[in-house]
Write a protein that binds this DNA or RNA. Sequence first.
RNA 1: GCACAGGUGGGUGAGUGGUUAAAGCCAACAGACUGUAAAUCUGUCCCUCCUAGCGAGGUACGAAGGUUCGAAUCCUUCCCUGUGCA
Length: 322
Amino acid sequence: MAQNVVSAHDQIADRESPLAVVLGPTASGKTALSLRLAEDLGGEIVNCDSVAMYREFEIGTAKPSPAERARLPHHLFDFVEPTEYFTAGEYARRARTLLAGIKSRSRLPIVVGGTGLYLRALLDGLFPGPQRSEELRERLRMLSTARGSTYLHRILTRLDRAAAEKIHANDIPKLIRALEVCLSSRRKMSELWQQGRDALQGFRILRLGLDPDRAALYDRINRRAQQMFETGLIEETARLLAKYGDAARPLASLGYKQAAQFLRGELTREQALQAAQQAHRNYAKRQMTWFRREPEVRWLAGFGDDPEIQTEAVRLLKPSPG
RNA sequence: GCACAGGUGGGUGAGUGGUUAAAGCCAACAGACUGUAAAUCUGUCCCUCCUAGCGAGGUACGAAGGUUCGAAUCCUUCCCUGUGCA
């Protein structure tokens, strides 16, 4: 059934145009696959990788190289300032605007990335909740430090029992968001949830998922992290630290965090590398857990830079004749 | 060769006679995720069986013996490892 989605929709709804999504864990070859797809099918790349959206974070994010980007249009890379907070909601708005533009040019949008929440925000939408409030969060964070996360959970239970039951008492960030929603909207978050999500309209979505062998993936992750260290990740981190201090948000993310620990003398270079490799592996695992739940994914058992996988992917995306 | 220190589950590392199949941490595996998400959190984690439980049985703290109602914990010998002295 899944294989017929393209042709079936072609017949029924000609107002819907195709949208390709390439998802998969870090280092699975999403970039390589998306380039091939874009070139074969006349596509434009739309990034869905939260850290690659930040300016000045280059080596640790494995962004497509300038040469690769010169081959065809790439969107939503390098547009967030390092000190800026960026969110899934903001991403969804920008990406949707972009998608509409690509559609109007009759090109194939190819959304590529590993950030599950952002992808869901784009495709399925978010609930109609308030945006983040730094002041409120600051107060909640202080409360959490002073009284513990269980205390936050108790407050949430009083404000919104249904939401509290879904969030574990130890999960501080999610507790803070739920409290923020309840307090600043003066409504229960669980009620706002029931209003549903604003799913993306006007596209028939074709999800391609990369699912390489786990051991091979971990091996590739290790090598790539080492390569990042050898090709200037530490220098890049030092530059960012000097320029922004801790204010640059992605400095807390994979690779950068460990490079910063090395620079502060908390780890040796070797320890930092091993910790970075470990963090990338753990991340890949979490991504797989998220994407397994993604609906209607055509899984490809291999890496995206494998020509056979690419050919299979192209075939899946091409409308079947007749 | 002698003298100390030590050998614990995939790793690290507690435990020094009895609620100990053995803390905690890590890894691994599985899961959650509705505006910080490359974040954050949860579960499982010796083997087998089932009526799936704070259930039953079997193994287990370098090895082999011993003491004891009872040992990872005490004793003996042996084997390894580190450090010091030769």
